[in-house]
Nucleic acid binder design. Structure first.
Lengths: 109, 109
DNA sequence: AAAACATATCGAAATATTTCAATGTATTAA
DNA sequence: TTAATACATTGAAATATTTCGATATGTTTT
């Protein structure tokens, strides 16, 4: 059976099945490549919690550092920020993870 | 329906389904977070080619730089090096990509 | 054995990232 | 309206990564 790529060989295997560009992929990979940010992501996944107040308790970093890491996760699209009074709430953007996985899956087949 | 995590809540969701540690995940993410290394991976995926000779033609970098990037991909486990005469052949380790995707999938569900 | 070739390693300069004290901004409480 | 709270931004030092010329190592060719 022919795959799409054999039928349309001019289509880039690494950009066809989702809208992610190589630049976006790179930014997400960078965001994932830090132990503090991975911890933050896992905490946000466990329970959508307010940021610095809650996250600082689990990570040994100053407030501006936590803020800096959160910004990178947000800029990569992995985390969605939401203002709630004078606090912030952060949540995981499942779709961006799915797109990232789709991009990756071109390598493991 | 109960998930495994509800049945065994003491098991870490991010380390159960594969053997990858957070440190390994971090190293792979870092390796993926560079445009040159992504290009190299895509080229290796397309056709298992000899390294510097073939890869240098597609990337505007000096030979030691290509070697340096390849080393990071190898250290991350994404690429398998193989000596063939005086050349090297590099190939993708599908399994490591699959493990990485498994680790990631805990975030997108 | 000497020359040529393919790639790795070293070391240093250029560049990028991480970190935090100080300060700014917006929101709620007094 | 002044205090306090929650978080973002700035700017600078510490640290890590990228890059490449020079050189080393191992393999094939002559």
């Amino acid at each position: 059976m022919l795959s799409s790529f054999q039928l349309w060989p001019f289509i880039d295997k690494f950009a066809f099945f989702n809208t992610m560009t190589a630049k976006e992929f790179e930014r997400i990979s960078k965001a994932l490549g830090d132990p503090h940010r991975l911890k933050i992501l896992q905490e946000i996944k466990k329970n959508k919690c307010m940021a610095c107040a809650c996250i600082r308790e689990m990570i040994d970093l100053a407030q501006p550092s936590v803020s800096h890491h959160l910004k990178q996760l947000i800029d990569a699209g992995l985390v969605i920020p939401e203002k709630e009074g004078r606090e912030m709430r952060y949540s995981i953007d499942d779709k961006v993870f799915t797109d990232y996985i789709n991009y990756l899956s071109a390598f493991s087949q």
